[in-house]
C-alpha cells in the first residue's frame, strides 16, 4: 500500500453511538467503551467514508492555521492512538 493510497477509516467491527458532540465507541474485543470527545469525536464523524491523512489535516487546518507542522504531528498521533485502540484502521481502498 502506498502512502498516497492509504486512507483512515472507522474500524469495521467497532460498535458506536453518537451522543451530542461526543461519540461512544466499543472496539472489537474491548471490555469497555471509549468516549471520544473534541478532536477525536470530530475525526470519527469525519470518517463516514475512508479519508486520506491530508484530508484529515485539511479538516482541522482552520483551527490551527498558525502551526501546520504541529497540526500534522498532532493528527498523526491521534490517528495512531485510535488505531492502537482498535477504533480506526488504515485501508488502501478509496
Amino acid at each position: 500500500m502506498t502512502v498516497d493510497a492509504a486512507r483512515w477509516q472507522r474500524h469495521p467491527h467497532a460498535l458506536w453511538r453518537r451522543s451530542s458532540d461526543r461519540v461512544l465507541v466499543l472496539p472489537d474485543g474491548a471490555d469497555d467503551a471509549l468516549l471520544l470527545d473534541g478532536a477525536a469525536a470530530i475525526l470519527w464523524l469525519l470518517l463516514d467514508r475512508p479519508v486520506t491523512f491530508d484530508e484529515i489535516v485539511a479538516c482541522f487546518a482552520p483551527d490551527a492555521a498558525n502551526d501546520t507542522h504541529d497540526l500534522h504531528a498532532d493528527v498523526r498521533e491521534l490517528c495512531r492512538e485510535l488505531e492502537q485502540a482498535n477504533v480506526l484502521t488504515l485501508t488502501g481502498q478509496p
Binding site: L15, W16, R17, S19, S20, L24, L26, A33, L35
Partner: peptide, 16 residues
C-alpha cells in the same frame, strides 16, 4: 448527557 451515555453504553453491550 450522562443519562444518554448510560443508555448508549447499554445498547452497545447488547449489540455485541
Amino acid at each position: 448527557a450522562a443519562a444518554h451515555l448510560d443508555a448508549c453504553s447499554e445498547v452497545l453491550g447488547l449489540e455485541r
